[in-house]
Write a protein that binds this DNA or RNA. Structure first.
Lengths: 249, 249
DNA sequence: CGTGACTTTGATTGGCCTCAAAAGCGGTGG
DNA sequence: CCACCGCTTTTGAGGCCAATCAAAGTCACG
């Protein structure tokens, strides 16, 4: 496993983030109270918690690669991870942007369908899949929560498909900003910390980094956002961002 | 439920396609022999079979709509169905193209994330979700197969993301043809029956119908395909199609 | 045989990619 | 503290691909 290969930062299990902060992750069809109001994401996390092992992953390092046997499930404690696929000619596409608190790599098939790499230095908790699936097998309530999480993933992917297939560059960037506004922690001043480069954003949105940059400049010109620092974006006027998102292709 | 509203073609259960022909559906990470070589798709189908009810759906009619409670799971016996989402301005995107033999609408969340409508007159088998989930809860082997099916869906969606985000119109159409070549039944002469219009293909690939038409014309000009009839495409030279697919933007 | 839906083809426009270079930012070492 | 270097971001100019608008052609069906 690449995890331990990096820096064998294998924390004692007691140090694994306990019942982790389920502060976020609310895919459009909000985490329904399938279970007394506890979101499915949290149910799965709580169940997996005892078998987790944390490790540091440096920026740019792979966590798993397409085609590999899927031996673990993962939870991101800090940093950022992207799940990406590659075209024959090497062009990259980021299928999923994983933020702190998110589960990822939850394959139920034998092999990985995509590659995961750290977009920033990250701390990742891994769960041996055999043990994790045994837990899920043993508890239908947990299995159901897991299905809900997977369902949310698919909904999100379908929303991304609509975005890629049918919207302009400006609308995609606006939509991305609103997404990050909901999914990211804020700084004190309300600015959103976007933990990825323009290139990463471009690969997520099916654009080039130049086009992303131009779109951000345009939104700033309109007063919709401010760009106080490299990877910090202040969503000054959400209505303006939303209208840029909806102004069709 | 819209199904019965159409024509109450509620076949006696005996007439529900028995252990259905699992002739197809092989997402890239092929249906792994998780269970003695039986693909997960077939395990799920066999388990659901006793609680299915068939109904006809006329072309253009909805099967379910975004936002509705997800009360059923579905299997397509014949015809074609598309699962689609809509942008604010009404633009449509086809997230999933459902062909005979496929399961669809397998939501685990409370509400539908997208709309399903018949692209051709279809026969659809529906399974009450409460009963279906109870079956899945009762059998971990089945639950696992279900997870594998869901995982295949996500892989497919991610492949579509790469296609939308990073390839030219010609490459998308070529890729679509190869996909249909694997997923569709063939006519006697080997021609693929594509059960959707150019508009539908365009909405699936994030293009316009004119562009799809031009791409098909170009592939025909190259001798890669022949277009014997309206919705029939003969994949004459797969290598040529594959090279069009890979010749990147 | 007429009608309507679908498909193909053509001409034009515009948006995004490409290539190129300058500017900003963060680190390191003198 | 400042000079330097690498990396990221921004800005610019030009070209190409696909959308758009428009019209002719094809097919199924009543």
């Amino acid at each position: 496993m690449q995890l331990s290969a990096d820096a064998p930062t294998r924390w004692p299990q007691a140090r694994v983030p306990p019942s982790p902060p389920h502060h976020r992750t609310a895919p459009p069809p909000a985490p329904r109270a399938a279970d007394g109001g506890v979101p499915p994401h949290a149910i799965v996390l709580d169940a997996l918690q005892p078998i987790g092992t944390a490790a540091r992953v440096r920026r740019g390092r792979q966590i798993f690669a397409e085609g590999e046997p899927a031996a673990h499930w993962y939870w991101l404690a800090s940093g950022a991870v992207q799940v990406c696929s590659f075209a024959e000619d090497g062009k990259r596409h980021v299928a999923e942007l994983v933020l702190p608190g998110d589960l990822f790599g939850l394959e139920a098939c034998a092999r990985r369908g995509a590659t995961a790499e750290a977009a920033r230095d990250a701390v990742v908790v891994s769960y041996p899949r055999a043990r994790a699936e045994a837990l899920v097998d043993a508890d239908p309530r947990l299995a159901r929560a897991f299905r809900e999480v997977a369902c949310g993933r698919l909904h999100h992917a379908q929303a991304c498909l609509l975005r890629l297939g049918r919207t302009s560059a400006l609308a995609r960037v606006a939509s991305f900003l609103l997404e990050m506004g909901e999914r990211c922690r804020r700084a004190a001043d309300g600015a959103v910390d976007v933990p990825v480069t323009r290139d990463d954003i471009a690969d997520y949105l099916g654009l080039t980094s130049e086009t992303v940059s131009r779109a951000l400049t345009e939104l700033r010109r309109r007063g919709a956002i401010a760009l106080p620092a490299r990877q910090s974006i202040h969503l000054a006027d959400r209505a303006a961002i939303a209208s840029a998102k909806d102004a069709g292709r």
